[in-house]
Write a protein that binds this DNA or RNA. Structure first.
Lengths: 342, 342
DNA sequence: CTGAAAGCGCTTACAG
DNA sequence: CTGAAAGCGCTTACAG
């Protein structure tokens, strides 16, 4: 643990001022190219790393973004965190994580902790039904295009439409939609889209797993067999996690997927390609979403006058939604046209 | 975006020095309890938040820990990140994330980026086969007890033993172990443990999915049916992700789980309780691991003289391993004793 | 092209 | 019990 080299040290070895060293390193200010190069070389040699605290204090910027998630244990989190981390580090920013732990107070606490740590801006994936406003620093939100204050997100409605249209195309006329929560705007958008994509002539049933969850403590049966018996030929879920539950319940009941029933998911979670049959699902380009949201936030930090804000104070991005992509795998089967059951 | 209140402002409103205000807020130094209280009240009122940059520059500490992961998209990541974030924020530290993106250079880059951001200490879950040494700041590693430099981790060998013993107890005498990589120390520990737990009399076969992965591009079949035909009655995997692949392949082939074949996983990933049949698996108490590793790291930061280091410079923790817990669900079935196949 | 100086907002000995 | 002052390590106008 050698003492960290400082600017002064570098300045002394060259008999120049710290200002000159600083300029050499940052490339700003007028300085002879030759000297600048020599200083940079030497800096690398001795492993000089500028003190982030010194710089932050002077410039008023920490170079760090806060990322607040509703619940880190959410299976979608890896995709999101990876996208944000990547985009942020490309822009030269670090990412400090905050976990709302599934509660609204947890969200406020997480935001305050990050604020205290001096983040330059905040990226929030808000908990359902919560609104974050005026934190005194640039704020961007990823949620759903239907959410007020949304900065950018996948176009969940569009994803629903595509999935619905795909199922309709395969010939499905009686579809069961299995959602999780009736209070999720994201899921509501997907449901709307699915119905639209399936078309007027399709018969659509809808259940929410949150309604069933408490029936018998542990994960209970969704009672899918009876839906199939009544003529359902496809189960469209709003999450791969639900799709997995549906798929295994059907297979366990001896109902072959996709021969007897098609199953589709959402989000392209890690296992959707690793199971048999592979899961047909909708994928959001998270890398793209991360790039858009981080760039909008960074712009608002670095050039506040140019950045647009919504009424609630969140940063605006363009585009504010990113199309989802249909990934066709075996769980939805090949095109086949069922007879319409009466 | 009102200007942030500063210490000076607070000092002026009370006609005291900034030193007094600082003491009142931190509780250090001698100051009349009454004045201290009034200052604290006022500080809360005006929403005073001390500048982290100012404090960091003066104290030489940022109050931030770096967390470097081999690959954020790993499904185990949510559990880990949540545990670390929780433990760190309990200790008053923030967590800056770094993603190695699956490569050794990525790991070095991530570490350097975090170092440049002034983290007080670093927490690394190292990529297979890499060693991180002497970063000039306290360093803790989570890997496997068998890894040199390991600070703390789940006792993977112990987990294997428990799982093996459980399967043996159920009567399984011919078991297929499905691992992913032959170069993973964690998996090697689990395999060792499994063999030990299954006992001498058990016939054990072992395959690695990485060997098969390239056979035909996409996820291919593991050819489980033939193993079952040869007498395998249980498939023990080293990850719930693999277990899922096994389970769906078996079900798809008409081999009922657990009636015909038992399946077990590892890690208790989010879906293991949501599928049918529920997946029997081994769970590590990540919250406990996070607590231990963060406390060891923080101790090393705050009281360097008291902290123990390994030869490679990593912080030591006690205990250095945490027992895993067996979660019995339907996929392994009830006790049943198979006839020993010749 | 280079340097001297100010100052970002804190905390911590030290003096009173 | 309180205050004056130094200084953490940078960057940025400004002067030369």
């Amino acid at each position: 643990m050698k003492p960290k080299p400082k600017l002064t040290l570098l300045a002394e070895t060259f008999n120049v001022s710290v200002a000159t060293v600083s300029n050499a390193l940052s490339g700003k200010g007028r300085i002879s190219p030759d000297l600048a190069q020599r200083i940079r070389d030497r800096a690398r040699e001795i492993g000089y790393v500028p003190s982030s605290a010194g710089r932050a204090l002077r410039t008023g910027r920490s170079g760090v973004l806060g990322l607040v998630l509703p619940d880190i244990s959410n299976p979608l989190f890896p995709q999101i965190a990876q996208a944000i981390e990547q985009a942020a580090s490309t822009c030269g920013y670090g990412v400090l994580i905050g976990d709302a732990r599934g509660s609204t107070e947890g969200q406020s606490e997480a935001i305050n902790r990050l604020l205290e740590r001096g983040v330059d801006g905040m990226l929030v994936i808000p908990r359902r039904g919560t609104r974050v406003t005026d934190i005194g620093r640039p704020l961007a939100m990823i949620d759903s295009p239907s959410t007020p204050g949304n900065t950018v997100s996948a176009d969940h409605h569009d994803g629903g439409v595509k999935m619905g249209a795909y199922l309709a195309e395969l010939g499905h006329r009686h579809v069961l939609i299995v959602a999780m929560s009736s209070r999720s705007i994201v899921q509501a958008d997907r449901i709307e889209g699915l119905k639209q994509g399936l078309g007027e002539q399709a018969r659509v049933e809808l259940i929410f797993t949150e309604d069933l969850a408490e029936q018998d403590g542990a994960v209970g049966s969704l009672g899918l067999a009876s839906y199939v018996a009544r003529g359902v030929t496809a189960v469209a879920t709003l999450s791969d996690l639900t799709a997995l539950r549906v798929l295994t319940e059907l297979q366990g009941a001896g109902l072959s997927v996709p021969d007897r029933v098609s199953v589709t998911g959402f989000d392209d979670l890690i296992w959707s390609s690793a199971i048999t049959p592979g899961l047909t699902t909708m994928r959001a380009d998270m890398a793209e979403i991360g790039r858009i949201v981080v760039e909008a936030l960074v712009k608002s930090i670095e050039r506040p006058e140019q950045a647009e804000r919504t009424q609630s104070g969140t940063v605006k991005a363009s585009p504010d939604r990113v199309a989802m992509e249909l990934l066709i795998r075996a769980s939805s089967g090949k095109a086949r046209h069922f007879e319409v059951t009466s």
